[in-house]
Amino acid sequence: MNPAGPLLAARGLHKTYGHTKALDGAEFSIRPGEVVAVMGPSGSGKSTLLHCLAGIVTPDAGSIDYQGRELSAMNDAERSALRRGEFGFIFQFGQLVPELTCVENVALPLRLNGARRRDAERTALEWMERVEVDDLASKRPGEVSGGQGQRVAVARSLVTGPRVLFADEPTGALDSLNGERVMQLLTDAARSTDAAVVLVTHEARVAAYSDREIVVRDGRCRDMEHAL
């Protein structure tokens, strides 16, 4: 366990959609290099928590501190810059651009940050090698399997060297063998760069790749590390 203080910490998060309380005083913290599984039943607020932590959704109340900076105090441009540079994302489906090749997909975040094409694709290929999909560089997403596509997405989520990787059911669409391989590669790659991983999952076998888990129920979090 990393002894450093939290990299990202949320306190008293509230978020309501219509009459539904998605978050009701949720607390969360993660240290550099730590993999934390966010578990809980469907509709408990797991994804809302992830979206708030990543600055995609603004909570109605509460604070989110990222390395001493309050997310709600940032303007849209600052939050966008954070999401492009410091945060990485991986979802269950539909994250690769079908018209681009796999290496162009992986290089895309770097290109959006202003990197030259050749530099971006060289870095992209290095990451594809690490997650064992460099042989797919010139293929388009429609030509690769679900497991391969998800590994390409892992490479893309890490290509900018994010400090926090947000993974929302990253293996949800894969069979168990491919799912496990993705989790191995994802956690190995994240640990090698000391990135923290917020891993939303309902699957115990996926959560078993984490260092600890929190349980979200009715919009509140239970930190199981401190519960026992």
Partner: peptide
Amino acid sequence: DTQRSEHLRMMRVLT
């Protein structure tokens, strides 16, 4: 929750 956590602890060791 407590039981789940205990199971996960064992699953982490096996993983």
